[in-house]
């Protein structure tokens, strides 16, 4: 056990989807605690509710039952506006299929969270500074030479690195990664994991990563195994300062 209180806590989460008038339960009373600075991997068979968990934790969806706390404050029942703000500033998202906007170039894609956050006037006033920050982030993920390229002109690995830069632009407290290497070859997957580990170790970013790839598990601090919508096992692999207490 540990003394610190969790940054993110899920209590008795239930979630079901309706498919052709049939209620399909996905989460059935899931409990989870994530501590600041942790790199948690969530593994389990397809359909066990990993992605649904990520969506609920990141306020993209609401649970049917149960509660989610951020820093001890309940967030699952917040009004839409506050949930939008959490997604914009507190959580960063990385998806399996990168999900970059095809009409925008790499730099614009990275800047989108700021464009959403700021008013037109504030954006215009701070645009140089923000662009500079986006370029630095793209440089950190090795994409400074692809600023003006559209997503269709990038490789899968490059697109995922651009997505990481986009997730980091708002300086989120928690990074939610849904199968970030699932669509990449081994080399590109390894590069993405290297970037994520660097962010976790050197910048203290809390990361929750859903993956199918069991080879990635040893590279994280803790693994959460899921089955039929509940956690069946949690195992600490590389303890963080928070876990050590």
């Amino acid at each position: 056990m540990h003394d610190a209180s969790p940054i993110l806590k899920a209590v008795n989460l239930h979630k079901a989807y309706r498919k052709d008038a049939i209620n399909v339960p996905v989460l059935r009373g899931l409990n989870l605690e994530v501590f600041e600075g942790e790199f948690v991997s969530v593994v389990g068979a397809s359909g066990c509710g990993k992605s649904t968990l990520i969506h609920l934790l990141g306020t993209l969806d609401r649970p049917d039952q149960g509660r989610i706390y951020l820093d001890g404050s309940r967030i699952d029942n917040l009004p839409a506006k506050q949930r939008d703000r959490l997604r914009n500033r507190t959580f960063g998202y990385i998806f399996q299929f990168y999900h970059l906007l095809p009409e925008l170039n790499t730099l614009e894609n990275v800047l989108i969270p700021h464009m959403i956050e700021l008013s037109l006037w504030r954006w215009w006033w701070n645009r140089r500074e923000l662009k500079q920050r986006a370029i630095e982030l793209l440089d950190r993920v090795g994409l400074s030479h692809r600023l003006k390229h559209k997503p269709r002109e990038l490789s899968g690995g490059e697109m995922q690195r651009a997505a990481i830069a986009r997730a980091l632009i708002s300086q989120p407290r928690i990074l939610l990664a849904d199968e970030p290497t699932g669509n990449l070859d081994a080399a590109n997957g390894a590069e993405i994991i290297r970037i994520l580990r660097d962010l976790n170790r050197n910048h203290g970013l809390t990361i929750i990563m859903v993956t199918h790839n069991h080879e990635l598990v040893p590279l994280t601090n803790r693994v959460v195994r899921m089955q039929d919508g509940v956690t069946i096992d949690q195992q600490t692999i590389n303890p963080t300062k928070a876990l050590v207490g």
């Binding site: 990141g58 703000r85 914009n88 998202y93 999900h99 959403i116």
Partner: peptide, 9 residues
Amino acid sequence: GILKALGAS
């Protein structure tokens, strides 16, 4: 969906 995930209202 992407825009909403990034905080667009």
